[in-house]
């Protein structure tokens, strides 16, 4: 019999799921819809819960193993819940050569977590990336959608400060916003 993954039992936010469905319906003619659908799902849920991956597999009629293959191939996708801010350190060739590894080490020390982990206060998750297409700016660190160029290990704390200073209340407010068009 098919083994039920424990994550499967996890409650999935139905409002977000119908938002995702709407996205899929509206993009029916798009070729190679899998990656855009996964991106949208991660945008909505913050990460890719097992049930959502299975849902996408069913909706797009693509085998679950293939969808999982794509999810695990790209470091952009995460199957575990992440912090408020996702920090991605590029370790592509150019960034690697120009000290990406040292930047990563500095971030690990500063945050006290390893790659793939989230800080205890759930503020930051640390990940690595394989080239953001900004090699001229190497080494590059992305925090959410912000690109930070020519990052120096010594100035990591400064870089994080702006994200740390954000008023917590504002964050909560934002999180409570109903996704656009979700209210029927």
């Amino acid at each position: 019999m098919v083994r039920q993954n424990t994550q499967c039992a996890e409650e999935v936010d139905q409002v977000k799921l119908s938002e995702l469905d709407r996205f899929i319906d509206d993009s029916r003619d798009v070729k190679g819809l899998l990656i855009p659908a996964l991106q949208r799902a991660q945008e909505l849920f913050g990460y890719l819960p097992d049930a959502v991956i299975r849902h996408i597999s069913g909706r797009l009629d693509i085998p679950f193993s293939e969808v999982a293959g794509v999810v695990t191939f790209y470091s952009f996708f995460s199957t575990v819940p992440r912090g408020e801010h996702v920090i991605r350190v590029c370790l592509g060739t150019a960034c690697y050569v120009r000290g990406g590894q040292e930047v990563l080490t500095a971030l690990r020390h500063e945050l006290g977590i390893e790659v793939g982990q989230t800080t205890e206060d759930r503020r930051f998750s640390l990940e690595i990336g394989r080239c953001f297409g900004a090699c001229g700016l190497a080494p590059v660190v992305m925090v959410d959608d912000d690109v930070h160029q020519r990052v120096k290990p010594a100035r990591i704390r400064e870089l994080l400060a702006s994200y740390r200073e954000e008023a917590h209340g504002a964050q909560e407010l934002e999180a409570d916003l109903v996704p656009e068009g979700a209210a029927e």
Binding site: I62, P63, F64, S65, E66, A68, G69, T72, F73
Partner: peptide
């Protein structure tokens, strides 16, 4: 995937 169209196997991770 192609002959049997089951799709049980696929490369995972990288």
């Amino acid at each position: 995937n192609e002959v049997q169209q089951i799709g049980a196997l696929f490369p995972q991770y990288r």
